[in-house]
């Protein structure tokens, strides 16, 4: 079976709303003032969004993730390399889970 009209409708609908939301963000931002409070707010959005993506994953209270997060941060601070920090973070979480499980 290739696909069905129902599946096609669902996928096209999902695609449309996903694109609309992404496009709308930029279009709305273009109407915001470029100075003052709105501009300051927009400047703080990236950091706040990234902090919101990371914090709940680390706050689950799992020590392996906390140790790995610390290692990731440390490696990035010393090396300024995203790839290296990520690789060692993944390795640390792998080893920490083995150690903590055993």
């Amino acid at each position: 079976m290739w696909t069905s009209p129902q599946a096609l409708a669902a996928i096209l609908g999902m695609a449309l709303v996903s694109f609309a939301v992404k496009a709308l963000g930029l279009l709305l931002a273009n109407r915001l003032p470029r100075h003052g409070f709105a501009a300051a707010w927009l400047r703080h959005v990236p950091g706040a969004v990234l902090a919101s993506l990371v914090a709940p994953a680390l706050a689950t209270g799992n020590p392996a993730e906390l140790i790995a997060a610390l290692a990731t941060g440390l490696v990035y601070w010393r090396s300024r390399s995203l790839l290296l920090a990520m690789a060692l973070g993944v390795l640390t979480v792998y080893l920490a889970r083995l150690a903590l499980a055993g």
Partner: peptide
């Protein structure tokens, strides 16, 4: 469930309002 699938995609992607706004 075509409607719920589309609605779920909309709700989950709402965060992109913030993301693409910062690309201004």
């Amino acid at each position: 469930p075509i409607g719920p699938l589309i609605l779920a995609a909309l709700v989950i992607n709402l965060r992109y309002l913030l993301l693409t706004a910062t690309l201004r």
